[in-house]
Each structure stands twice: as structure tokens, then as C-alpha cells.
Design a protein around this nucleic acid. Structure first.
Lengths: 390, 390
DNA sequence: TTTTCTATCGCAAGCGATTGAAAACGACGT
DNA sequence: ACGTCGTTTTCAATCGCTTGCGATAGAAAA
């Protein structure tokens, strides 16, 4: 017979054991027909809430008013009298009060957080876009959450879901190279959370997007090469499902046409944008076609590695082969010869992306997806300068 | 007399106007002594909750059980029967349920988010550390929130507060160059939220930290230069309050001592790590002292810009001056000559930082701050190779 | 059968803040 | 003194989920 007193009638005789519950002995008082368990002695002096962040409840208690008044006072709601506001703010400051973002988010159904998914944070192109995004986002009071897909479709999908089901207020995304299907995006479109694409976008989705000046960039680089006397310009592009490749190629063609040169498909190197693939393709085409006098690599890293590669083979740049890139990575002004490249204005891109998100937010329901193209500019350096101006 | 029925007694005669409230007419029923306002007709058919994310309440209703059971079932709580669990999970999947992170966080008082503050995301060193952090963090189910101080103490402080008062579960920070006081960190130490420092740490705070192999790095680079026959090695360092500088300088001295060479303070260039300052200092010292035959720049970017600068002046590298850096930035293998540098293992650093955070979390109360040094390794390239091995 | 046990569930109190709507309180005119 | 109002506060429901603790119906034991 357990020596336990019933919590209600305080008798001992009537108490009998009644199984276990979550590892603890449970009792039943026959008289009261009352089940109970002996839990840990609760500290009666309630020091439990020690070192606990101050809440509006604390403020309310301190002043002796209700929490709703405190809440409104802190928000400068017009209904609250000036002196109450002053008192509340004073106490809030004294108690070092900071609103609990989670609770606010739960109530207001927003997180003031935006998720950004990029292929690779270590790539200057993306990290500088990020800076642009962060600048305008944080100016608007938004926090930025970043994740990288590392060019894997799978992790991109996982990250997308993680973000979208975690109450980000918006998603800014640049797809991985691998991504060819967009179900993971479609799935979340109807949720109403703004999604903005940039750089590697998807046209079939009705989202807002920010594009580089790809066509113009391709055009300008090619036109510049031609102006330097290049006749047989190889263009190194990536997989055809990336529309940035298509666009730059288009610009290339446009420049040829403008200069009355014929487009030779054999001068187009299709690679997967990996260094290995790029160099292999370059080698192959140069072996096959000795007339080549310029290489336009769609990416700066590609161009740079190409330069290193060609130099190793004793080829003079730009005298024998001119090389140009796209992206204006910092490395471009370090390498020798310094790299001619198209500057896509990455900061501007980031800022525009974030701005588009904010627009979507304020437009709300009647938001119309917008497409913005950020103008870039050609940076001419020595890797293509055959006729140095005097 | 208003033609309005009292909401309670439904009589009209007893109702009289009673002022306005927020722009709307208010009424008072004398009989009931009840104040009320006629608000917009609430849609009775309650289609209000349209396109609203499914919650455990929906699941509970669908099955006809209580929300607590659903909650437990989803968490695989042992109290719940197998079939209930299966049913719950099935319905959850059917309804495309995703837990509301905010609500979970509010209940469990955690966000499963960790904040990272770095000086500059566009710098490879930091972005690669970030990758390391993200890898282990996301493996442990934590999201990562990033902000950059852009080397400004002020924004570092602001970001710190933003993070700490926004319920991140931990803070990983590398201080800005400007940061000399740490009140913003101290302020939050007692909150109990784990803080881990890395690279630019602060000793006076009792936090866990991850350090580069600075001393050893400084030693190895210097020792290597000496082994290549350099006698007068300039070391270019940054502001003395950055202990990474001190440490690398120590390594430098240690290597000198090991090789029985005397330390010459005039060979130490104190810069603020800006390119301008570095190049000016290099110029100055080379002008003053013609015997210099090597430059050890504490940062790769510094070393790289130095190489470019010296080459422009017609100085042969490494024949006349050897140049070595620290950091193993990707640019180092592109520049000509390729740069000898100490590889600090940035990924490893990031992983270690995150790991330390996780450790702190599981150790809880009785956590003892740890200091970890991530071993690096010397990468010898041609910028220092005077006696190429055959 | 009656008395114990269990295995499962449900109730309800939070978590911290927002917000619709009622209440309290003076002040004023008549 | 009463009816009217405007101003300032307070009440209480919610947001979606976790969890301490109590309830209940069969199963097992007595």
C-alpha cells in the first residue's frame, strides 16, 4: 500500500497505485475517484522565470497597465495618450526590452525575412549580388537568409521548400545549372509569397525577374573584338537550357551581322562551364581550326583559365589570340594580360532584385510581374587590345 | 432616434447613440447598459480562411482527434499508437502540412537559426568559411543567417544586436578590423546564447573560438623563404590590435630565430591592410633598404597586388624579390608567378566553428569554452621558388 | 468479478504579441 | 442630473504549436 496522501482529501488509506504514466508512478484515490501523480516539487518561490527576456507583460506589470496598451504605445498608436507612451517607452528602455520577433511574426503572419538561394556563395558574381540585396533589404527592415545550392538541383529543391515552409516573406532565387524543371517553384507560387528570379531565370513562371544585360554584353564584347581586328572569334558557352548562354550567343551573332561577318556555327563551343570542359573544348577547336584569333568566354573564370592555359602553350595574348570574358571578376585586373570583360553591374542587380521584391509586397494582390534588365558596360583591358590607342 | 436593435435584447427603443469610436457610430442600450458598434457584416459562411496553410488543427479535425495527439504523433511520441501515427502522417502528407516554424519556435523558445557576422562576404576567405559553417549547420537542422559588417564597427554592433534580440540560437562572429571594444558582445553573454568567435577573436571574452594556424603559418612561410635563400624578408602586417597580425609576426620571428637570423624591426611594415597602404609601405621600404629580397604579405590580396606592382616596376619575381602570402586565395594560382601562400583550411575552420556552437548547445549549462586551432599547410608555388628542385 | 494496470488520448495553459471591440472616464451642453 | 461624446484603456480572442498533467477504456491480475 503506497504511503501517499491523496491530493484532494489528503487521506492515505484510500490511495492505491494506478499504473505508470511516462515513467512516473500514478495514484488513484478511491474516495475522490481522483487520479494523480507525484511530480517534482515545484519551487514555490517561482524563481523559474530567471534571466528571461523582458516582455510587454513585464512592462505592463511594472507600470500597472494592460499589455494591449503597452503594445499600442510602443507602436505609437494614436489612441494612446502621450504620457502613457512616454512612460511605456521609458520602462521599455529601462528593462532593455526587445520585441520577440517570433511572437510578432506569429501574430502578424510575417517574418520580415527574405530567403535567397544562389548557386555558390564563393563566386564573386553571386556574393556581390548578395551585397546589393542585403543593402536594400536591410534598409527596408528585412533580414536575409542565404543558402547555396552548390549547383545541385536537388539541394536547390530542398532549400526552396525549407525556405517557403519556414515563413520567409519572399524568395529570391538564381537557379542551379542543373535545374531544368521548376515544379518546386510552381508548387509555392499560389501561396502568394513573392518570388523573384535573377540571372538564371525561368520564363514559363510568371514571376518578376532581373536579367543581366546578356544580349548587349555579348554584342559589345564581340563588337569590340571585331574592332580590334579579330576575324575568327570562338565563343565558349554553356548548356543551352541556360538562357543566359542563348542571350549572349545572340549578342555575339548580332555583332557579327552588324559587321557583315558570317556566323560560323563551328566557332561555338558548347561546354558545361566546368574548367575542364572549357579547356578541352578550346584545345579541340584550336587544333582543328588554325584561323582562330579570339576567344570569347562567357564566364570570366573560363576566360582567365583559358589565358593561363594558352600562355602555358606559348601563345601570345592578345597578339595571337585575344581573350575576353563576361562578369568583370576582380581577378580580371590581376591576371596578365588584364582581362577585357563585360561588367554586369552585380551590385545594381542585387539591389534591383530586392527592390522588385519590395514592390511586389507593396503592390500586393494586384501585382504585375516585372522584368528588369540591368545595363552593364564593357571594360576594355589588355587581353584584347591589339591596336593600343596612342 | 437610431433605428438600431440592441445586440443583446434586440429592442430598438432602448438604444441610443453613444459617440464615435474610430470613426464608427457607437450605440448604447439603456436597458442592457451595453455598448456596441455596428461593424461590417461578418461573412457568415466563413470562407475567410481561404488558401491558408494547413495546421495541425486541420489535421486534427480531419481525423477527429485532438491537436495534442497530432502534435505528438508527428513527433513520434511513444504515447501515441502506431495506427494513429500512421493516420496522422498520412493526412498530414495529403494536406501538404508543414509545421509553422514561428509557432514552434515560440513554444519551444528556439529558432533553429544561427547568425553569422563576417566582415565581408565577397572575400573568398570568409565566403568559404561560410560554406563550411553552412554545411555542418544545415546537417544539424539549423538555418544560417548572414550579415556583413563591411569592416565597420558600427554596423557590426547593429547587426549583433539585431541578431541577439531576434532569437537566433547562436552567434558566430568574426570582428571587423575597426572593432576594438567588445561591449556589444558582453552585453549578450549573460543571455546564455552561445557565441563563437573565429579568426579575429577577442581574448577578454570567455567565448569559444576557432583560430587559424597563424603562428605556424607565419613560421612556415618565413622558414620556407629562408630555405630559398632569402636573407632580408619584409613582413607586411596590419593594425596591431588584430591578434592575427601579432601571431603571424611571432611565427616570422620564430622562423628567424630557428635559422639564427636576427630580427630587424625595420623590416616590419605596419599597414592598415588596404591595398593603398600596403603598396605605399612596400615602396617606401624598398626605397630605403636595397637589400630586401623577399616580401611576406600577411594577406593574399596584399601579396598579389604587390606582385603586380613590382612587376610593373620591372622587378623580377622571385629572382629579385620573392613574394609570399597568407590565405591561399584562388587568385594565387592564376597570377604569374603563382603565389606561395599558407592555406588556412577555410572550410575546416567554418566546420569547426559550427561544431563548437553545436557542442555548446548540447553541453548546455556546464559548457566550458574551447579554443581550437585549425591546422593549415604551406602551398609552395613559383613566387618564392628560387632553387627549383630538379 | 473486481481491482489494478496500461496504453492512448485529450484538456488547457502557456509562448509573446497583435487587434477588434467593449468599457471606463471625464467633459460639456442643456 | 442626464444625455452625448470623445479619449484612453482594457478584455479577450488569435496566431500555431508544445507539453504538463489528468482521464478513460480495455487488458491483466487478483
Amino acid at each position: 500500500m503506497p504511503r501517499v496522501k491523496c491530493i484532494k482529501c489528503l487521506k492515505e488509506e484510500t490511495v492505491l497505485r494506478a499504473g505508470f504514466i511516462r515513467g512516473k508512478q500514478r495514484f488513484l484515490c478511491k474516495e475522490c475517484n481522483y487520479h494523480f501523480t507525484i511530480y517534482k516539487e515545484r519551487d514555490n518561490d517561482k524563481p523559474s522565470r530567471k534571466n528571461h527576456a523582458t516582455t510587454i507583460i513585464d512592462i505592463a506589470k511594472a507600470i500597472g497597465i494592460s499589455v494591449s496598451t503597452v503594445s499600442r504605445a510602443l507602436k505609437d498608436h494614436p489612441d494612446i495618450s502621450l504620457q502613457t507612451k512616454k512612460a511605456v517607452k521609458q520602462v521599455a528602455a529601462d528593462l532593455n526590452y526587445h520585441p520577440n520577433t517570433l511572437a510578432q511574426g506569429l501574430s502578424k503572419r510575417e517574418t520580415r525575412t527574405i530567403g535567397v538561394i544562389i548557386p555558390d556563395i564563393e563566386t564573386y558574381f553571386f556574393s556581390s549580388i548578395l551585397t546589393g540585396i542585403q543593402n536594400v533589404a536591410s534598409a527596408a527592415g528585412y533580414k536575409v537568409m542565404i543558402s547555396q545550392s552548390k549547383e545541385s538541383h536537388e539541394t536547390e529543391v530542398a532549400n526552396t521548400h525549407a525556405f517557403m515552409t519556414n515563413w520567409v516573406d519572399g524568395l529570391l532565387i538564381c537557379h542551379s545549372k542543373e535545374t531544368k524543371t521548376f515544379d518546386h517553384i510552381k508548387l509555392h507560387l499560389k501561396s502568394g509569397i513573392p518570388i523573384v528570379h535573377f540571372d538564371r531565370v525561368c520564363d514559363e513562371l510568371g514571376t518578376s525577374k532581373v536579367l543581366l544585360d546578356d544580349l548587349n554584353g555579348g554584342f559589345q564584347v564581340t563588337d569590340h573584338l571585331i574592332s580590334q581586328g579579330c576575324k575568327r572569334i570562338v565563343i565558349v558557352i554553356g548548356p543551352p537550357h541556360l538562357n543566359v548562354c542563348i542571350k549572349r550567343l545572340e549578342g555575339y551573332k548580332k555583332a557579327l551581322k552588324k559587321n557583315n561577318m558570317e556566323f560560323d556555327p563551328s566557332l561555338v563551343c558548347h561546354t558545361n562551364l566546368s574548367i575542364k570542359s572549357i579547356l578541352e573544348n578550346v584545345d579541340a577547336i584550336m587544333k582543328k581550326d588554325k584561323s582562330i584569333d579570339a576567344i570569347f568566354s562567357i564566364s570570366d573564370i573560363g576566360a582567365i583559365r583559358t589565358i593561363v592555359h594558352l600562355k602555358k602553350k606559348g601563345i601570345k595574348i592578345p597578339e595571337q589570340i585575344s581573350v575576353a570574358g563576361f562578369g568583370n571578376e576582380p581577378m580580371g585586373e590581376i591576371i596578365e594580360p588584364t582581362l577585357t570583360s563585360f561588367n554586369p553591374q552585380t551590385y545594381k542587380i542585387g539591389e534591383t532584385v530586392a527592390q522588385l521584391f519590395l514592390n511586389h509586397l507593396i503592390e500586393g494582390e494586384n501585382h504585375q510581374p516585372a522584368t528588369k534588365v540591368v545595363k552593364g558596360n564593357l571594360i576594355v583591358r589588355s587581353s584584347t587590345l591589339r591596336n593600343p590607342p596612342d
